[in-house]
């Protein structure tokens, strides 16, 4: 692992923390406020690639688990994991890995739409599905019921995937994937 990768991983973990400090966006037609922190996970995957995206995300998980209030709303600590929403968070490294893996696979001909599809798969479907599964186990609910309780978040997550994809197209040249591929 090169020093550059190490610094970039730390940098993007810090970006996730900073995104958590943003106030949630409220939109008239979506019932729940959108926290833009999970955008950070999509960024980690699509900017850093599978390996570094995973490590960078793992770094955030470690920071949360050691009790630093880095999740949106100043939350942190092992209690996040044992709470009903723990699934939406503990899956982050896997989600970043999946996004990174797909982006690296499609790298040669990547464009906005491919970024968008990849981020919807890894950053919306995977996270929400696993989060709902986790919620259903913790709260003894049927998987269907917790999936339905998820629906309110889907439009916001979709918007986040669009934002990340727009950003990634514009910053493709300086992304760590490009820097590693071209030495």
């Amino acid at each position: 692992m090169k020093t550059k990768e190490l610094v970039y991983d730390a940098l993007f973990a810090a970006i996730v923390i900073v995104l958590g400090l943003f106030p949630p966006i409220t939109l008239p037609f979506i019932p729940v406020p959108i926290t833009i922190q999970s955008m950070g996970v999509m960024l980690q995957g699509s900017f850093l690639g599978k390996k570094n995206g995973f490590i960078s995300s793992l770094l955030v998980v470690i920071l949360v688990l050691i009790g630093l209030p880095v999740l949106s709303g100043g939350r942190g600590g092992l209690g996040i994991l044992t709470g009903p929403t723990g699934g939406y968070f503990i899956i982050w490294p896997i989600a970043a890995f999946v996004i990174g893996y797909l982006v690296e696979k499609l790298w040669k001909k990547i464009n906005f739409w491919k970024y968008l599809i990849v981020n919807i798969i890894g950053g919306v479907i995977l996270i929400d599905f696993f989060g709902a599964l986790y919620l259903s186990v913790i709260a003894h609910m049927s998987v269907m019921a917790s999936l339905v309780s998820n629906l309110a978040f889907i439009p916001g997550d979709f918007i986040k995937a669009v934002i990340v994809s727009l950003i990634c197209v514009a910053t493709k040249k300086i992304s760590l994937i490009a820097q590693i591929k071209h030495g």
Partner: peptide
């Protein structure tokens, strides 16, 4: 990882 944890905390105010 421990160096990266410190680096991350340093980066927050910079960002």
């Amino acid at each position: 990882l421990s160096l990266m944890v410190t680096l991350t905390l340093q980066f927050v105010p910079i960002i």
